[in-house]
Design a protein around this nucleic acid. Structure first.
Lengths: 145, 145
DNA sequence: AACCAATTGTAGCCTTGGCTAAGTTTTTTG
DNA sequence: CAAAAAACTTAGCCAAGGCTACAATTGGTT
């Protein structure tokens, strides 16, 4: 299949695409939480359950359950009734996410999307951007500037 | 707050963004299924459970459960052991999704992303694109052509 | 017509990520 | 410093979307 038609390409790639989406969904929450924890520590000196709940718009019970999972998976450390910290693994992930987020927001603005919408859409879009596309975004936004 | 700083904007918009993502996740499956059913009917004359399972890379049991939900929600009609059909509501949704999908793929290609990656990423990205951003994508791809 | 393979359906399990409600611990404040 | 408020934990519920295993139906072949 040296030069597949668009239709064949689409068919061929289909199930891989859906699998990629399912994988992204599994890391999405972890990414959002570590990034938010890093932001909160940077902005306010500490990250508390109540801050995360308010930032995500969910209840503190939900935050608690998620934190337990992130702890188990080695992204977060926490002592009972105390504020949250990132492990080195969590910090690394947070940095990558922050950078990716900024690239996506900057790119959307550079093609004329409003700042508000850029923020809103970036939050959903960023988890589904491959390295190749991210590179294209960064290159375009840079050229545009 | 007439001219909010970037930081304030981000904070202000945050929880709305996450809520938007959660909403998108709730419609995502419905959108993928109706679009796939429409494609299958167009390509092969009918849409069967087994085709959907293979296209999405999941088991037929999973497809079955999802179809039951889509039926309950009025997107799909099905008789036992027969192929699947879209309701008018489902057809309308399928058309909107197909169009949006094509815009996203075309746009990604227009900024230099390979056809394969464009397809892969579009599948995840398309559910998180607001009308404003979609418009910007379409305008850019058109200008580029 | 009967059998076999493929397809479809059903039951039951798991994880994630929501929620409410009730109980603890910490912190603030009168 | 004791009481009230705030923050946190825990338990238990729900729906979605995965899965395996088994049951039922359909459709082709012989």
């Amino acid at each position: 299949m040296a030069t597949p038609s668009n239709k064949n390409l689409r068919t061929e790639v289909r199930s891989a695409a859906f699998e990629q989406v399912r994988e992204a969904h599994q890391t999405e929450t972890a990414e959002d939480y570590v990034e938010m924890i890093a932001d909160l520590i940077a902005e306010k000196g500490e990250a508390r359950v109540v801050d995360l709940a308010s930032a995500f718009g969910v209840t503190h019970a939900t935050v608690n359950k998620t934190i337990a999972r992130l702890n188990k998976e080695g992204f977060v450390t926490n002592e009972k009734y105390r504020s949250l910290f990132l492990t080195p693994k969590g910090q690394k992930m947070a940095e990558a996410c922050k950078s990716r987020h900024e690239i996506v927001v900057g790119f959307l603005k550079s093609i004329g999307v409003s700042a508000r919408t850029a923020e809103l859409d970036a939050e959903g879009v960023e988890h589904h951007i491959s390295p190749e596309t991210l590179k294209a975004f960064a290159a375009f936004a840079k050229k545009k500037k």
